[in-house]
Structures are given as C-alpha cells and as structure tokens.
Design a protein around this nucleic acid. Structure first.
Lengths: 143, 143
DNA sequence: ACTCGCTGTAACCTTTTCTGTTACAGGAGG
DNA sequence: CCTCCTGTAACAGAAAAGGTTACAGCGAGT
C-alpha cells in the first residue's frame, strides 16, 4: 500500500461537508468528519488544515465551532484539492546523481523533468474536470 | 523524497541501451548500466527484469552476455515503461474502511474509483506521446 | 472576565516501502 | 567444463505515512 490516500481523505471530508450543508448543518467538527472517514480526528484536522490554507474551507473556533466549505461545492475542483494536499510530484528523479561523464547521465534529468511536468499537468487537467458536487452526486447514486 | 524513481531508473537504462546500440554496442551488462545511473547493479537487474517481462528488452546469458532493446527505441513508449515498472496506482483509497452507515462513507469508494481511473488514464495517455527515442534526443540536446 | 469546546500542532510510535548491499544458485556460450 | 553474468533471496538502513497522545490557544457564550 504505497499509494497516497491524502486526496481520498480530503475529498471525503469535503463531500461530507457538502452533504451536511445541504441538510442544514453548516458546521462539522473534526470528530464528526472523522466518524465518517473512520480515522483519527487529528488526521482530519491536518487534512482540513491544508484545505484551509488553500482557501477551500473555513473554520470557526469556540463552542459550536467547526468546519464549513468556503465556496459552493460546484466551484471546488479536484485539481485544487490535489494541489492543496499533495506535496510531492508523481515521479521522482534519481536518488543519487547520475554519472555526469556519461552523455545520458548528463542530460537525462532536464529531459525527464519536462516530460514529467507534462504528465503531471495532464493529471491535474483531468482532475479539474470533476468538482466536489460531482463527487457527491456520484457517491449518492451508488446507494 | 516520497517520490518514485522507478520510472526514472528504467527510462535511463533504456535510453542508455538505445545510445549504445547506435554506437555499435549491442549488449550492455547490468554493471555497465549501473555505472551510468550511478547505483547498484542489482537495482538495474530488478528494473530491467520488469522490462524483460513486459517484452521491452531481451537478455543473453553466458560470457559476453548483457541486455539489449527488444524493439527499436522509436517503438517503445513511456506508457509501456510505466506499466512495466509501476505497480500501484497513483491514488489510494482509505486505509481503513469508511463508515458504511454514513451515505458518503458508503458510496465514495466506487465514485472515487472511476474518477481515479480516468486520471490515471490521462497520465498514461500523456506518457504514451513520448518514446525512448524522443527521450534520448532531448537528453543529448542538453549537452 | 471566565469557562468550555474545539482547533492547531508538536512529539512519538509503528508499519510499510524503497533503495542499497551481500550472497549465491543457475544458464549459456566458448 | 568453465567462466561470466543473470536472477533472486535475504537483510539492513532510511524515509514517509498513518495513527495516537498530549497540550497550548482561541473565541463565543455566559
């Protein structure tokens, strides 16, 4: 299980916030979100903290506090969520510097860099075609 | 450094094999490839082993043995290399099963599954636009 | 102004994965 | 048969992620 579940956690939390808002509950605490995702509240706070820094959710303190969407769910794309929670690029370079006396070792990193950048952009473009509202609709269709 | 360098290692090895072939050296040992990538020969054998199982390279045993491309470098796309060496999908699901009594927890996994599948296909499609010959050309342009 | 509930974050543990390394059995030309 | 290199198992070390506990800080309501 090398795979990254950060995007999954964040999208799940946002979809749950979107559904709660539709049901009239404007605020949700990290405990409530964690109960749906079935994980520790700190994991949710870390994830929602990334989303807050990206301007996708807002938070209220004090009693009756909690998290809410900063925008309508139709206007939050998965590409934005991806940017907010995903730090490292999909593909990495060599761990150790390649042999610079070899013509391949010398030039391959910039070459791969532009190729990987294009692939990453294609990934983001595809994610950008889906919004949190789309995810919620598909999620509720299943049941 | 969470990022995966497996694709980088494999593409580096293939580009080096392509250049060697152009220079008249048909076979390269894992030691020779490792010298350019600047890593351990076993890492190279593991990576080239994946590529052999995918039919992208062939190997000869005995003295004077080594690896060679099974096809012209123009006909090896990075999408095939990606499939050969990359096991896990880019995005993973929850580590623990979400709460199935919550409507979001119940339906989000199939919904995300189809979205992730589309994103993954977009990534492969973009990688499919580049061949090993393209990588080699761009690599040699740099120097 | 105080209190209480929840956020925000640091610190730490465990598990997993990856690279790197050593060691050795096996296959195939010469 | 002999030699060279492949193929793979086994293991160590490092890095990262999820999970857990603990606690300081903020702010609305009393």
């Amino acid at each position: 299980m090398a795979a990254n579940s950060r995007l999954t956690i964040a999208v799940h939390a946002l979809a749950w916030l979107a559904l709660a808002r539709r049901q009239g509950r404007e605020q949700l605490t990290s405990d409530q979100v964690a109960a749906s995702v079935n994980t520790n509240p700190v994991i949710i706070r870390r994830s929602l903290g990334d989303l807050r820094r990206a301007g996708l959710v807002s938070v209220r303190h004090g009693p009756g506090a909690g998290w809410s969407l900063a925008r309508p769910p139709e206007e939050i794309s998965l590409a934005e969520v991806y940017d907010a929670v995903e730090g490292d690029p999909v593909f990495g370079m060599h761990h150790t510097e390649p042999n610079l006396e070899c013509p391949v070792g010398k030039g391959i990193r910039p070459a791969l860099g532009s190729i990987y950048s294009g692939a990453q952009q294609a990934l983001r473009r595809e994610l950008g075609r889906t919004s949190i509202a789309d995810v919620l609709r598909q999620t509720l269709q299943v049941s």
